[in-house]
Design a protein around this nucleic acid. Sequence first.
DNA 1: TTGAAAGCGCTAACAC
DNA 2: GTGTTAGCGCTTTCAA
Lengths: 345, 345
Amino acid sequence: MGEYRDITIDDVARLAGVSRATAGRVVGNYGSVSEKAKERVLEAVKQLDYQPNFIARGLRSQSTKTIAVVIGSIRNTYSTALVYAVEKEAQKKGYNVLICTTHEDIEKELKHLKDLNSKKVDGVILMSAYRADGSMDDKYREFYIGKLPIVFVDRNIPGINRDVIQSENFDASYKATQYLLNMGHKRIGIIATSNFSTVQERIKGYKAALTDAKVEFDEALIASVDELSDKMSRKICHKFLEEHPDVTALYILNNSLCSGVLLDLKERQMKIPQDISLLVWDDEEYNELLDITTIEQPITEIGKQATKRLFELIGDSEETIDYECKKLNPELIIRKSCTSPNQGK
Amino acid sequence: MGEYRDITIDDVARLAGVSRATAGRVVGNYGSVSEKAKERVLEAVKQLDYQPNFIARGLRSQSTKTIAVVIGSIRNTYSTALVYAVEKEAQKKGYNVLICTTHEDIEKELKHLKDLNSKKVDGVILMSAYRADGSMDDKYREFYIGKLPIVFVDRNIPGINRDVIQSENFDASYKATQYLLNMGHKRIGIIATSNFSTVQERIKGYKAALTDAKVEFDEALIASVDELSDKMSRKICHKFLEEHPDVTALYILNNSLCSGVLLDLKERQMKIPQDISLLVWDDEEYNELLDITTIEQPITEIGKQATKRLFELIGDSEETIDYECKKLNPELIIRKSCTSPNQGK
DNA sequence: TTGAAAGCGCTAACAC
DNA sequence: GTGTTAGCGCTTTCAA
C-alpha cells in the first residue's frame, strides 16, 4: 500500500479550483455557495473519494455527533431494547451511539462519565447504577450536574435535578400486587434486585396494596439478589422457598432473575400456577411461550423519548430548559401463571 | 452557569509554571519529565480538575481510542453476547465501543463503514450483512479492504482477504444432522434465514450428512425466513408444516426463528419431541428451560478473539500482517427435544 | 529534561 | 458569494 495520506478538504479545493472555505461550505452543507462552485466541488469530492474528517470537524465545532448509553449490562432484553430504541433515534439524526457498561458498579459509571466528558460525546442516556442505600461522595455529584447533557432512564438519583424518564413503578406494582391479593394470596414472596430507585418504588407499591387489603406486611418475604445471574437467583430462590414454604405466589421484580427461579421450580417439580403463582417484571420472549404473567415496561418508548429529549438538550445552547421527570405506564399482561392459592390443593 | 470555558492544557501549564509541552507530557504520559515538574503538573491538574480533550488528542495522534461493532440487530442473544465480549476486551485496553446496526441491510452497512472512516474509529468488528447471492457493486469492495482495520466475525465475504473468526459451521451442522439421522429421521425440515455465508455452510453440512447416510436431499424441505421476527418465522413454519406434514424433525438454523416456530407448534398442539423433534442453532436462556437441544456457538470466545486480533492490527503500523480465517467449534448440547420418529406414534 | 513552534483538518469570523 | 486568516486543544518535531 505504500505511503499514504488522507485526502483533505484542501485537495478538494485545489482540484475544484476554489478556496478551502468554499469547499468546506459545500461538503459541510453550511453557508452559501453558487451553484457552479457547488457542482465543481461535488465533482472533485467524487473524483478524489473525499471523506471528511469528523475529528477535525469535531474539534472545531465542538460536536462529535455521538451520544453514549450507559447501562449495567447489555446481556438482557431490557437494556437491549433500550439500546435499540436509542440507536434508532440517533440514526435518524445522523448520530452514532457509544455503549458503556457498568456492571452495576457506580465507580465504573463515574469513570465512564469522566471518559465521555473527555471524548466530548454530545450527550448521555444514563441508566444509573446508583443504589438508594449507596453512599456517593459529594465530589462525584458534579459528574451528574455538569455541562454534559444527560437524560436519566429507568432509574434516578435523588437530589440530582435532571431529566428522568421511567416507568410508573409504584402504581404498576400496586396493581400487580392487588391482582394477586384479589385471587386470595396472602403470602407473596418478592425476589428483588439491589436497591435501585425502581426497586424501592415497586416495593412501596407492594406494601401499599398489602396495607389497603389489610394483609400484614412481612419483611422476611423480600429476598434480594445482588448479582443478576441465573446461578445466583436460583440459589436465592431455593433458600427462600425452603425457609418460606407457606408462600403461595412469587413476585419477581426483574426478569433477569426469572430463569433462575424457573430452574429451581423445575428442579423441585413445582407446577405453575397449580403449586405456586408467578408474576414477573419485564417481558421476555419465553414469557409468552411459558404463559407467564408479566408487567411489561414501555422500555422502547422510554428509550425513544429519552433520546428525543436528549437531542432537545443538545440542540438548545441555553441552559434554561427545565428538567422534568416523566413516568410512563407499564402494562400488566395477564397470562396463565397466576391462580388462586387453593386451586392447587 | 454563565460563560464557561473548558480547562485546557495551557491552563495547567500556566498554573504549574511549565510549558504546554511539558504539561502535555505528564498528562499524556509520554516523553520524559523530571519528577519535580511532574509533581507540579499533577497538582495543577488536580486543582483545576483538568480533563484532557480526546478530540484534540485524536486529531493530532490519529487515534480515537474507539472501535466499532457493526451487527445486524442488537435484539438477540447472539449479537448481544458478541457486543458483550467486544466491550469487555475493549475496556481492558481503555477503548470505547460504538455500536452500529444494519438491520441486515448491506447498504446500511456500507454507509456505516463510510461513516466510521470519517469518525476515525481505530478499528471495526464486522458481522457483515453480506448475502452470498447478493450482488455487491465492485466500487463498494474498497470499504472492506481499505486502511481501516477490520475483523470479520461470524460471517465472511468471499474474495475479501481479511481476518475472519467464525464457527466451524459445516462440521457442526454435519454432526447435528447425523445425530438426527441416527435416530431414524429421514424427513428433516430446515428453517433458515437469508443466505449468509454461515447459512450456506450449515446447509452444506446438512446435505453432506444426508448424502453419507444415503438419505435423499429434498430442496423443498428448506424454508427460508428473510425477516427475523417471531411473526414471520411463525408464519413460515405454519405454511411449511402444512405443506410437509411428513417432516419428523425441524432443524432451525438461527435462534431468532425459534420462538416463532415454538408458538406455531404450541398452537397446533404438537408436543416436542413426541410429535416432532427440534434442533436449534445458538443457545437462548429458554432453551434450557424448555429442554431444547441446541448447537451452541462459542460467540463470546469469538468476540474475544476477534477483538484481540483487532488490537493486533491496530497496534501494528506495518501492513504486512497476514490475515487468517479462524474457525472455532460449536458444541452440540443434547437435551430432550429430539427422539426417534416412531417414538410418538 | 525542557520549551518554542508547527500543524493535525476543519469551521467560523471577517473582509472583500 | 467567496477567499483569507485564525484557531479549536493537543502532540510532535527540533533545538537548546
